[in-house]
Simulated scan of single mutants.
Amino acid sequence: MTRLLLVEDDAALVGILELTLPAHGFEVHATGLGGHALHVARTFQPDVAVVDLGLPDVDGLEVVRALRALSDIPVLVLSARDTQHDKVGALDVGADDYVTKPFGMDELLARLRAALRRVAPGDRAIVFRTDHLTIDRAARRVERDGARVHLTPTEWGVLEVLMRHGGRVVARHDLLREVWGPQYVDEAAYLRVYVAQLRRKLEERPATPRHLLTEPGVGYRFEP
């Protein structure tokens, strides 16, 4: 069973998810308080988390931020807020996906499967090295100037796809489809957020990147 931490205060929704998700291979541990989420995460040790933004005690973004500092598990946000500003804000603090309420169960399950696929071990033992940067794709490990760099599962997904096409341009819609799924091919804001985050973490000069390059109007490429 895949352990799922559900941080949601809507009792009716919690009841539906606790009834439905176990039939699809998930063991659900729910809490309605964001302030309790970290304690549950430490004891339950989930494989994935689903977090509502509209919690009664703290803003769900703070929960996402705290979970991300604690672990690199995939974190999906649930919210009735549907503006691009809200979605980008959640991605910026470490969420891997954003599901707008109301949602279909099939959609939620598909996004959970996609998020979990992004944390599966890679099948290519390729190590990329420069004087300042080491990326071990098999170990899913990055070091910059000898220090470990933490990447979220979605950051890994974007980086791995670009490295797999090393030196070749990956179109925005292809990258979105491969990392997030076909329903995301028009969500260019997702890519801008994650590529910017990767540049801050990996590049010596993020404003003038050496490895993570933009091809205006087309997409992105990883330059070895």
Score class of each variant (00 low, 15 high):
residue 208 T to N: 14
residue 29 H to I: 07
residue 163 M to V: 10
residue 138 A to Q: 10
residue 5 L to T: 11
residue 192 R to V: 14
residue 41 A to C: 14
residue 3 R to Y: 11
residue 52 D to L: 11
residue 51 V to T: 07
residue 15 G to E: 05
residue 206 P to D: 01
residue 164 R to F: 11
residue 69 A to G: 07
residue 56 P to Q: 10
residue 79 S to E: 02
residue 176 L to G: 00
residue 64 V to Q: 03
residue 85 H to T: 12
residue 117 R to Q: 14
residue 50 V to H: 12
residue 146 G to P: 08
residue 223 E to G: 04
residue 3 R to S: 10
residue 193 V to Y: 01
residue 66 A to L: 14
residue 223 E to S: 15
residue 12 A to N: 13
residue 30 A to T: 11
residue 167 G to Q: 01
residue 221 R to K: 09
residue 149 V to G: 02
residue 41 A to I: 07
residue 65 R to Q: 14
residue 166 G to A: 12
residue 67 L to R: 07
residue 81 R to W: 06
residue 99 V to T: 08
residue 204 E to P: 07
residue 210 R to E: 13
residue 118 R to T: 06
residue 24 H to N: 13
residue 116 L to C: 02
residue 64 V to Y: 05
residue 166 G to P: 00
residue 128 F to I: 15
residue 12 A to R: 10
residue 126 I to Y: 08
residue 105 M to A: 10
residue 53 L to W: 10
residue 146 G to V: 04
residue 2 T to M: 14
residue 42 R to M: 15
residue 126 I to R: 08
residue 152 T to N: 02
residue 75 V to M: 01
residue 197 Q to M: 13
residue 98 Y to H: 06
residue 188 A to K: 04
residue 104 G to D: 08
residue 80 A to K: 14
residue 201 K to C: 06
residue 113 R to A: 09
residue 183 Q to C: 00
residue 99 V to E: 02
residue 202 L to K: 05
residue 80 A to N: 12
residue 185 V to C: 00
residue 115 A to L: 09
residue 119 V to G: 08
residue 153 P to R: 04
residue 171 A to H: 09
residue 58 V to D: 02
residue 83 T to D: 12
residue 102 P to H: 10
residue 58 V to I: 14
residue 16 I to F: 12
residue 182 P to W: 04
residue 109 L to P: 00
residue 179 V to E: 01
residue 179 V to R: 00
residue 149 V to Y: 05
residue 224 P to F: 04
residue 149 V to D: 02
residue 151 L to M: 09
residue 120 A to L: 15
residue 208 T to V: 13
residue 125 A to N: 10
residue 65 R to T: 14
residue 148 R to G: 03
residue 20 T to I: 15
residue 48 V to T: 11
residue 167 G to L: 06
residue 112 L to D: 00
residue 21 L to W: 13
residue 207 A to D: 15
residue 204 E to D: 12
residue 118 R to S: 06
residue 135 I to C: 03
residue 212 L to E: 03
residue 118 R to D: 12
residue 52 D to F: 08
residue 168 R to W: 04
residue 185 V to H: 00
residue 184 Y to N: 03
residue 198 L to Q: 04
residue 52 D to S: 13
residue 84 Q to Y: 05
residue 121 P to M: 06
residue 75 V to Q: 01
residue 7 V to Q: 06
residue 137 R to C: 06
residue 164 R to D: 13
residue 119 V to E: 11
residue 72 D to H: 07
residue 34 G to P: 13
residue 114 A to D: 08
residue 32 G to A: 11
residue 92 D to P: 09
residue 42 R to F: 12
residue 202 L to Q: 04
residue 219 G to T: 00
residue 41 A to T: 08
residue 81 R to F: 08
residue 119 V to C: 09
residue 116 L to K: 01
residue 170 V to D: 07
residue 210 R to S: 12
residue 11 A to K: 04
residue 181 G to W: 00
residue 143 E to H: 12
residue 171 A to V: 10
residue 87 K to A: 13
residue 151 L to V: 07
residue 173 H to A: 12
residue 215 E to A: 14
residue 25 G to I: 09
residue 178 E to V: 00
residue 135 I to Y: 03
residue 14 V to N: 07
residue 105 M to S: 06
residue 122 G to E: 11
residue 94 G to I: 07
residue 170 V to C: 09
residue 212 L to I: 05
residue 48 V to K: 02
